[in-house]
């Protein structure tokens, strides 16, 4: 009895069907963007690392260009990045409405962020291990696939966990341009129509998503780390 009263006091007029739909949209945006971010981030991060001084693909020009790209897109505030990318998104996705329309901006915003973390993770690898692999006659491809990636995997996973959480908060901002999701719901139904319960509920769900992501990330990192 008391529970019901409390619940209705806190969650009042929450439309659970809408809330569920928004949650699914947030999860969809976050997870799809995460997969692409992981992929592009690792490629960018590897390129950053490998073109650096004394690395196997040392190339000043390439390193500078990739570094500049990463720095620029990491520095633009996400809300502005979405607006800047509107024409690009229109040509790519065909619309500016719905969760898919948020994906290009999410990926372009998050991949450079993750790329820096990948680069840091790779730098942490003991140089001696790379030297030993060279001494064994490993090719560059083998060094990347058998040494660099496996040896940095725990750091790559904890990096993608941090990125995933950042992505969840980016999706909330993407709501502003009509992408849907919990951020959109909290802003329009919660803030603009003065329903604080909706804002509150959306916040709680976002927090739960973040906690679950962190938990999974920590678990995987610990399992991978044999140091």
């Amino acid at each position: 009895m008391l529970n019901t009263i409390l619940a209705s006091a806190v969650f009042g007029d929450v439309n659970w069907a809408n809330m569920w739909e928004a949650t699914v949209e947030t999860l969809y945006m976050s997870l799809v963007a995460l997969i692409f971010t992981f992929f592009f981030g690792i490629i960018l991060g590897l390129l950053l690392y490998l073109t650096d001084k004394k690395q196997i693909w040392e190339n000043k020009a390439a390193h500078f260009i990739i570094g500049a790209y990463v720095n620029i897109f990491r520095s633009i505030p996400f809300i502005i990045l979405i607006v800047l990318l509107v024409p690009f998104t229109r040509t790519l996705v065909g619309t500016m409405l719905g969760p898919s329309a948020a994906l290009p901006a999410l990926i372009i915003g998050a991949a450079p962020f993750y790329a820096r973390m990948v680069e840091i993770a790779l730098r942490e690898i003991d140089k001696g291990v790379i030297e030993a692999s060279k001494a064994m006659g490993a090719s560059n491809g083998q060094i990347i696939s058998k040494v660099l990636l496996p040896e940095s995997m725990p750091a790559l996973v904890s990096g993608i966990t941090v990125t995933a959480i950042a992505l969840v908060s980016y999706t909330a901002m993407a709501g502003v341009i009509g992408a849907g999701g919990l951020g959109d719901l909290a802003f329009r139904d919660g803030f603009q129509r003065n329903n604080p319960e909706i804002t509150f509920t959306a916040t709680v769900i976002v927090l739960i998503i973040v906690f679950i992501l962190q938990f999974i990330g920590d678990m995987v990192t610990n399992r991978l780390d044999k140091r």
Partner: peptide, 17 residues
């Protein structure tokens, strides 16, 4: 040719993974 030449190191340089 390097595959025909083994090498060991002061700090072992094993893959911890």
């Amino acid at each position: 040719a390097r595959q025909e030449i083994g090498m060991i190191f002061q700090h072992f340089n094993l893959l911890w993974s």
